[in-house]
Structure formats: structure tokens, C-alpha cells
């Protein structure tokens, strides 16, 4: 399979604290990969390193074969190829729903306002938020905010979508609406990399599951293999704790 993102020997430390240790990991085109693991295992940091919100301490990240950690690589252009969905939504508080989805297209991709609005509406429809284009973020519920955040990322028409625990900050009754949207996206063939604590969801949508523990990838494999026949002792232990 064609590798879109290929992470090689990636490491990241905050001071003395080594969060990621020699990570080798790749995402193929059209693949849906879920990263699971305990809090503090480094899964969010890995995701944030991939779009350079955290600067890796060592190693390489290849995007379509090009090393984006190269000094001359334009990280702003690279980031437009990755859609990011945050745990805390992070919608732009000063803009309404529509503007949240158009501003990146207009200011970064240099699309015209008309085109940007057309694209934004298309994806707002995908997440079921097209009726709320006039609302400000503070007027929306958590689930609605997260769906707009997904539409905002999709509006940039990225190659890969990164989800950083997209349902962890939501009230239980709102988790469903966000997961439904994500399942639909996964079915559509979008390349997705998801950090999540929702094990059932991970099992349903992903082609591959990566289990991280203490800064390393402890085990990876198909959902069936990871959930039904984990090879590593620590994977078994983790699953026993979360699947109770």
C-alpha cells in the first residue's frame, strides 16, 4: 500500500522526560488507523508530532516520501494537507460556524469567498451542521462544536485526517453523534488516524490498531487480532482494564 505518512525512528522529549522512543509507524492511503493506549503513553504526542504542533526531538517524518523535518520544507503548506480535530474542539471563538470553515480556505488556500462557502457548506452538510452556519461557537453544544470542527478540517480537503481524542471532552450523550459522523467518513475512504479511548468504535472502523505503551508501539495489528488475540502481555492487561 502507498504510504502517505511514514514515521521513522521518531523520538520526543520534554526536558528529561522521554515521551516517544524510536517510533516506527506508517499510515497507508485510505487506511483508518486507531491509536489506543493508557493516558500518558504518548499517543497524543505522536499525533501532534505528525503535524508538527510538537517539534520532534529526533527521527524523520516522511509525507509522500518527503522528509518534512527538513529545514527547507514549508510546514504551513504541509499542515494544510492534514486535517486536525482536537479534543477541546478549538473552534475560532470570534467567527461563526461558516466563517470557521471558510477562513482557512480563503486565507491559506487562497480560494475565493464564494468557492470557500460552497465547499464549507458541503462539508457542514456531511456533519449535519449546515443549518447552524450563523451560530457562534459559544452557542453550540459540545457535540455540535466537534462536528463543526470536523467540517472545518474537511473543508481544507486534506489527504489525512488526524483526530486527537475527539470524544473525550464530550458529555456521554453527545459521543454518539460525533462517532456516527466519523464512521461515515471512514466508510467514504478517507485516510484517518484516530487517537481514541472508544474501544468498540476503534474495533468497528479501523483497518489497523496501534497499541502504545510508555512511549513505544507495543503492538499493532488488525482489530480482530488486537482485541481477540493480543500477543503482548501489556496489551492484554490494558484491554482487560478498559473492556471490563
Amino acid at each position: 500500500m502507498e504510504k502517505v505518512i511514514d514515521v521513522q525512528h521518531l523520538s520526543k522529549s520534554f526536558g528529561e522526560n522521554e515521551i516517544l522512543k524510536d517510533i516506527d509507524f506508517s499510515v497507508g492511503k485510505g487506511e483508518v488507523v486507531c491509536i489506543i493506549g493508557a493516558s500518558g503513553s504518548g499517543k497524543s504526542t505522536l499525533l501532534r508530532c505528525i503535524n508538527l504542533l510538537e517539534k520532534p526531538s529526533g527521527g524523520q517524518i516522511l509525507y509522500n516520501g518527503e522528509n518534512i523535518l527538513d529545514d527547507h520544507h514549508n510546514i504551513y503548506a504541509y499542515r494544510t494537507k492534514l486535517g486536525m480535530v482536537f479534543q477541546q474542539f478549538n473552534l475560532f471563538n470570534n467567527h461563526n460556524v461558516l466563517k470557521n470553515c471558510t477562513i482557512g480556505q480563503i486565507k491559506v488556500l487562497k480560494r475565493s469567498k464564494e468557492e470557500a462557502e460552497k465547499v464549507a457548506l458541503k462539508y457542514l452538510k456531511v456533519v449535519g451542521m449546515d443549518q447552524y452556519i450563523n451560530a457562534k461557537p459559544r452557542q453550540l453544544s459540545g457535540g455540535q462544536k466537534q462536528r463543526v470542527a470536523i467540517a472545518r478540517a474537511l473543508s481544507m480537503e486534506p489527504d489525512v485526517m488526524l483526530f486527537d481524542e475527539p470524544t473525550s471532552a464530550l458529555d456521554p450523550e453527545m459521543v454518539g453523534e460525533v462517532l456516527t459522523v466519523m464512521k461515515e467518513l471512514a466508510k467514504s475512504g478517507l485516510t484517518m488516524l484516530i487517537v481514541t479511548h472508544e474501544m468498540q468504535f476503534a474495533g468497528e472502523v479501523s483497518n489497523r490498531i496501534v497499541f502504545m505503551d510508555k512511549g513505544v508501539i507495543a503492538e499493532e495489528g488488525s482489530p480482530e487480532q488486537i482485541f481477540n488475540a493480543p500477543k503482548q502481555e501489556r496489551t492484554k492487561e490494558f484491554l482487560k482494564r478498559v473492556l471490563k
Binding site: Y76, M84, F92, N93, N94, I103, M156
Partner: peptide
Amino acid sequence: IDKGQFEAAHAIGMNHTKTMFHVILPQVMR
């Protein structure tokens, strides 16, 4: 201003200047 606002702007490819002008400073103004 919440760090998430900067991160979200960076994540869609805005540089520091664009982030400031289109996302951060309007909120600061208010």
C-alpha cells in the same frame, strides 16, 4: 487567549501573522 486557538489556526496552515490577524487579535480586541 486559549492555546488551542493558536494550535487550531496553525493546524489549518496559518503562519504566525495570519493567526494573529484573523484569530487572536480580534478576540484580544474584544
